[in-house]
Write a protein that binds this DNA or RNA. Sequence first.
DNA 1: TTGTAAGCGTTATCAG
DNA 2: CTGATAACGCTTACAA
Lengths: 353, 353
Amino acid sequence: MGSSVSKDDHVVTMRDVAKAAGVSIKTVSNVVNDYEFVSDKTRAKVNEAIERLGYVMNVSARNLRRGRTGIIGLSIPDLQMPYFAQLSSLVIEEAKKVGLRVIVEPTLYSREGEFDALLGSQQTMMDGLIYSPLQLGVADIEDIKLEYPMVLVGERIFTDRFDHIATENVEGAKRATQYLLQIGCKRVAVLGTHPGEDIGSASLRLQGYKEALEEAGVDFDPRLEAPVGMWHRTDGVEAMNHLLDSGAQPDGVVALNDMLAAGAMHAIQMRGLRVPDDISVVGFDNSDDSQYLSPALTSISPGLEAVARLSVRVLNERIAGQHPLGNDTDAAVFRKVSSTLVVRDSTRQPAVA
Amino acid sequence: MGSSVSKDDHVVTMRDVAKAAGVSIKTVSNVVNDYEFVSDKTRAKVNEAIERLGYVMNVSARNLRRGRTGIIGLSIPDLQMPYFAQLSSLVIEEAKKVGLRVIVEPTLYSREGEFDALLGSQQTMMDGLIYSPLQLGVADIEDIKLEYPMVLVGERIFTDRFDHIATENVEGAKRATQYLLQIGCKRVAVLGTHPGEDIGSASLRLQGYKEALEEAGVDFDPRLEAPVGMWHRTDGVEAMNHLLDSGAQPDGVVALNDMLAAGAMHAIQMRGLRVPDDISVVGFDNSDDSQYLSPALTSISPGLEAVARLSVRVLNERIAGQHPLGNDTDAAVFRKVSSTLVVRDSTRQPAVA
DNA sequence: TTGTAAGCGTTATCAG
DNA sequence: CTGATAACGCTTACAA
């Protein structure tokens, strides 16, 4: 036989175990579910029977009875983007800790996919959903009716109808810019903007850059803004070359994500300039491989661990019918996870004071 | 209310719909399941009632009754590795096409995790498993008893007890090496070996390299073998620098994965040498970002699309109790997916003949 | 501490 | 083409 499905005549059920152990079904159930008040003797008897008969719980039956499945959904745009792969990995890990399994649903940049994840045929297959939309806006979900609790992740939608765990896009970029200013950069460029786009990470991060400049009393120089098409490495190369050719003379670069930063460093180095000696570079996302670049990339970490931990916790509490995060009200939770600057070798050391 | 769970007094069931539509429960079931022989009039009536009452199927009840859950597991070492993120993404996509959902289980490089994925408490929660182990060997699973069909993916374990979709590690590296030879490289280095490791991708790929050399009548020069610790970008930088310093004078490099290749290109370029003019570089895995490197990386594509498609198909056929891949026997399937060389800009153009 | 019995919401069987 | 009715395997009052 190719596969090894056990094709026994009869599937072993609790009833069989009960009979074999000479106890009632209820007792078997108690043992299986670690109910406290079972005598050791009985427990041993039952466990022996379970072992002997090769009994395994039928999860579907339990789910039907309990009205829960122990599964949550995680809807993200693209599992192949390092940012979302990491988020997924962390969410799965957190969920496991509280006995939940995760079905990951990549929506692949389509509105339809995002709606589907929300209202798809599996509404009763999941106890809840962690939702990170890219296409949908507030209007789309404002008066949607869901069968289960949902936690929003990201900064795409703001509403008080749902619990929401947000990241610090503005503050993160601001922090990066401030750091470059602080270590003595005079002409800090921002690389990777999406002109004309009013919502999304790019505009939020640009805003943070501008805020830092303003608070430092530095005028915004449009020549130091390098727009790109996508956020890939080549776009970073291209934009950085443009910046270098334009005579804008940057001595620091805030790249709006790590791939752009990698490309920027490449372009800089290809000209015989050095990172960080001639130009310091900061990335964003602190993706796994930022530490493996040459030089290792200083980057803003959005704190995905906390995002994963909080969103799973809130969702789990909603599923259990509790108020989230120990609140005393039922109101939707909004929480912003702090970003941190991870300093590596792509930025000069701070000037000694 | 923070979340929007519909807490109606009574969950709408098929019975309610049947009553509302003035038909029997079975008829509702027939409509919901797209049973062919239902009169249009009846179907319309039922659908109207479903809409009006806001009925949604209880998946757990269906699962219990049908004895299937419509969920398969995918066990991989690490969701954050591009290779596995891509595999997962593709498997999810393929599974969706045949009405299956996927629970991804990253085993995080531990034997325990890999056993867990196999025998975990959810044995009846999944209809089948796609399994890509890293730690376990044949001995570990040789006489394991599973509740469901399992399809192996990778080249870690070879057994005829389970269906197996393999990739071309040997052939892929051979193809890469042959290509470099063909375009005129005289001293082709292999970068990223793991000396002393007898099983796993590194040794298989090294083997392919050696086979190509041998068939071309080129002696293997140990000075052209660059071992590394890990398969990260920095390891590629380091190993390439070592190669360059050693006087081995490579004019072509087969990197054992794309990250190593990226690092190698970086090291080469930092010395003022050019890719591909001075040294041609081929990577392995054809990861998403190989096309975004500078220059865009020529790479071996392991054909993950086909791996995903085949493994889902075989698993699905097993679940349905059919012979896999249209075979006339029940024997375990073994299929090797062809790798292909994706030529980009990191290799010289073939010399004109 | 353990047993009894009534569902959970669907699907399948088999008549009508 | 449609309708009654019996499972599917488990949990959970309630009783003992």
